[in-house]
Every structure is written in structure tokens, then in C-alpha cells.
């Protein structure tokens, strides 16, 4: 069992890293031939960094769009960020100081993450418009994330899992030593779902995470009159004509 999980984790990590890097490379390589920022847009590079930061940290556009999606979506993402940071303790020895500090918050974040996910799912099921645009995979992603969050919470609040052993398993994996993983149902489920998440990330809508940084309507500077913007294939037409 431990060997199986070790292999799965190596594979999933490989798929995640290679897949994600290849998508990012594609986005970076693809030219943006025209200036298309959604205006009003910042006129300086610094302004663009701020705009992007507001989008990524606060979900500014979503806030303008719909408070239900924003509150549930933001709660879920912010909580998940905390939870992931909290999980760093399973991969670092000794555990970094700030990771120790956030441990109690990370725990509550597991609960708020679940609330956010459920709120989003309720919306997806009960609001006619959102139901109409939902594909089976949209529901399954929520199921998967809800599964990860609840199996994780179960280990904390319902059953006992030997987290020390889990930690030494993962520290071992990082040095390519396969150790012993506790045989524990919630843990197995938790880890299996995380493997699925990592492996499927680069072929799914989860690409919104790297995608936003490459979104021309958000990352372009509004200075088309001041600076001539040219792309490779656009420029080529000029030498041909």
C-alpha cells in the first residue's frame, strides 16, 4: 500500500509539474498581437501589478459581479491557501516558524473551506443559470474538493491518524526513501483524492490559476498611443507589404 501511494505521488507530481509548465510555456509563447486591456486600465507597469494583485488576492472583478459567488469562492480559496500552508509542516523538518504560528488558523480554515465549497455547490445546483452551464466535471471537481476537505477534517476531529508517521512517510518520499504509511481509511481517501487533483490539474479548468496571470485583458498596460505595440506575426506583415 505504501509503495502504491509512493508511486502514485511521484507520478501525480510529475504530471502536475510537467503539465503545468507546458501549459504556462504555451501561454507565454503565444503572442498577444493587439492591445486589449479591459479599460479603465492602469497606464503603468506598476499599476498592472497592483491590478493583478487585487484580482488574485481579493477577486476584485468577481466582487463587482456577484456577492454570493464572491463570498463563497473567496472563502474557499483563502481557506485553502491557509490549509495548504498549514500542511507545509508535513514536508519540513524542523517546521518553519511561521508555519507553526498559523497551525490553529489552518485548522479552522479547513472548516471554512468546506463551507465555501458547499455554498458554491448549492449555487451550482439550485440557480437555474448556473445549473445550465455546469458540466458533470464541474460537479465532480466540487465533490473531489469536498472529499479532500472532509476526509482531512475527519482525521482531525473524528478518527485518530498517526500524523507523525504520515510526516515521516512524506519526508522520506522527498528523499526518495519509501517508508511506511499508516493504514487508515480517511487518510487513504484524502491522499488518493489529492493525487487525482494533482494529476488532473493541468488538463482541467483548474488552469484558471496560471491563466489569470496571462489574461491580456488584465495584464496589459493601457498605453497604446504612447508606445507602439507589435507582435512577431503582425510585424511580419509590414515587411511583406
Amino acid at each position: 500500500m505504501s509503495v502504491l501511494f509512493a508511486i502514485l505521488f511521484y507520478l501525480a507530481t510529475l504530471l502536475f509539474v510537467v503539465g503545468l509548465l507546458s501549459r504556462i510555456a504555451t501561454y507565454a509563447r503565444t503572442p498577444a498581437p493587439l492591445k486589449i486591456p479591459t479599460t479603465p486600465a492602469p497606464t503603468t507597469q506598476g499599476g498592472v501589478v497592483l491590478r493583478m494583485a487585487r484580482e488574485v488576492v481579493l477577486f476584485e472583478s468577481l466582487f463587482k459581479a456577484n456577492l454570493w459567488i464572491w463570498s463563497m469562492g473567496w472563502l474557499f480559496h483563502a481557506s485553502m491557501a491557509l490549509v495548504i500552508m498549514r500542511h507545509l509542516r508535513y514536508f519540513t523538518d524542523p517546521v518553519w516558524g511561521w508555519v507553526v504560528l498559523i497551525q490553529p488558523f489552518g485548522l479552522y480554515a479547513g472548516i471554512t473551506m468546506l463551507i465555501g465549497l458547499c455554498g458554491l455547490w448549492v449555487r451550482r445546483i439550485f440557480v437555474e443559470r448556473i445549473r445550465y452551464i455546469s458540466t458533470p466535471s464541474d460537479h465532480l471537481w466540487l465533490v473531489l474538493l469536498i472529499g479532500i476537505a472532509s476526509s482531512g477534517l475527519m482525521m482531525q476531529f473524528a478518527t485518530h491518524t498517526d500524523v507523525i508517521a504520515v510526516k515521516s512517510f512524506f519526508i522520506g518520499l522527498m528523499g526518495f526513501n519509501i517508508g511506511q504509511l499508516p493504514a487508515d481509511a480517511p487518510l487513504m481517501l484524502h491522499l488518493f483524492l489529492v493525487v487525482a487533483l494533482l494529476a488532473l490539474f493541468p488538463v482541467s479548468k483548474l488552469l484558471h490559476a496560471p491563466g489569470i496571470f496571462f489574461s491580456p485583458t488584465r495584464n496589459q498596460t493601457d498605453n497604446p498611443r504612447e508606445k507602439r505595440h507589435v507582435s512577431g506575426w503582425g510585424k511580419k506583415m509590414e515587411s511583406e507589404s
Binding site: 501561454y27 469562492g73 440557480v127 448556473i130 479548468k205 491563466g211 489569470i212 491580456p216
Partner: peptide, 16 residues
């Protein structure tokens, strides 16, 4: 077009 490449992938069907 980077816009097309990114926009095809990035939508999560949030409904905003």
C-alpha cells in the same frame, strides 16, 4: 492569440 488560448482554458463556469 494569447487571449483565445488562455480564455479557452481558464473558465470555471462560475456564472459571474
Amino acid at each position: 492569440y494569447r487571449s483565445v488560448a488562455v480564455f479557452m482554458d481558464a473558465c470555471v463556469h462560475c456564472g459571474a
